[in-house]
């Protein structure tokens, strides 16, 4: 049911993200202070923004799950956080490369945004192990949702606290990350990349959801067939993944 949507989504992702990266390479000017290495900005910052948005979205879906107890929301929360953690790896790696290129270090503690992201990333790394270590599926969803809600609220608070810990202004360009101070020929590729990255997130999110739902259906069919054949194997194989099991 998702396939047509997925096809147009992937196409849109490819066009916007590809276009944004081409614009970043050829149209955007070389930044005066940092030189060519500032181009990492167009992949690193959109990725970070989308990952954080995914974490918050996971928290919202967790809240909806707690209110409605609809497994659909649990699946959404899980998939959003899962994708954001994957993007988070990319954010930290590209951030490290940028820090190395710009300041000669692999990690810059005075860069509040990068530090905050690391803390948030480390927190969300425990989401999967938490799910894995709760056996009862209903309890698993509920506890994971509580985690998602708390961690989602933590994201903005953490950014504020870390920023306060760095009262002095780091003499560099990254203060432009909000986009406010960006010249217009940097703004266009940046916002296009942000749109592209969001589309990429949505595409992968839907792909993952489709996969999980399909797997649930296959599992349901397997169970039905087993029942019909009278092979009442009570000791069914436990789920290998911590992913929410939505049985169609």
């Amino acid at each position: 049911m998702y396939s047509t949507k997925l096809r147009s989504l992937s196409l849109a992702t490819l066009l916007t993200l590809g276009g944004a990266f081409l614009l970043a390479a050829y149209y955007a000017p070389v930044e005066a202070d940092q030189g060519f290495s500032q181009k990492i900005f167009y992949v690193h910052v959109p990725m970070a923004i989308v990952a954080l948005g995914g974490f918050v979205w996971g928290g919202i879906q967790g809240l909806l799950f707690l209110r409605t107890r609809d497994p659909k929301h649990d699946l959404r929360s899980y998939v959003a956080i899962h994708m954001s953690v994957i993007l988070g790896i990319g954010v930290l790696l590209t951030g490290g490369l940028w820090a190395r290129a710009a300041w000669g270090v692999w990690f810059e503690w005075r860069e509040a945004t990068l530090v905050s992201f690391l803390i948030v990333f480390l927190l969300y790394c425990t989401y999967q192990p938490l799910r894995f270590s709760i056996l009862d599926p209903e309890k698993q969803s509920r506890y994971a949702a509580v985690f998602a809600v708390t961690a989602g609220a933590f994201v903005p608070l953490n950014f504020m606290a870390v920023r306060l810990a760095n009262p002095f202004i780091h003499p560099r360009v990254l203060n432009n990350t909000t986009g406010g101070a960006l010249p217009v020929d940097m703004k266009i590729p940046f916002y296009l990349a942000l749109v592209g990255m969001t589309l990429l997130f949505v595409t992968l999110y839907r792909l993952e959801m489709t996969h999980k739902l399909t797997r649930g259906r296959v599992k349901g069919l397997e169970r039905r067939l087993e029942r019909l054949q009278g092979e009442r194997d009570e000791a069914s194989i436990p789920a290998r993944s911590a992913a929410p099991q939505v049985l169609a």
Binding site: I119, V120, L122, L123, C125, T126, P129, L130, S133, I134, L135, K139, Y143, V146, F147, T150, A151, F154, L157, N158, M160, A161, V162, L164, A165
Partner: peptide, 26 residues
């Protein structure tokens, strides 16, 4: 939250320490 997990003593500091970083900072 952690008491219901199989790895409770293992997972509690992993969850709580990042969450408490703002407290430590301030």
């Amino acid at each position: 939250l952690a008491i219901q997990t199989r790895a409770r003593d293992l997972i509690l500091p992993l969850m709580a320490l990042p969450l408490l970083v703002p407290v430590v900072i301030s």
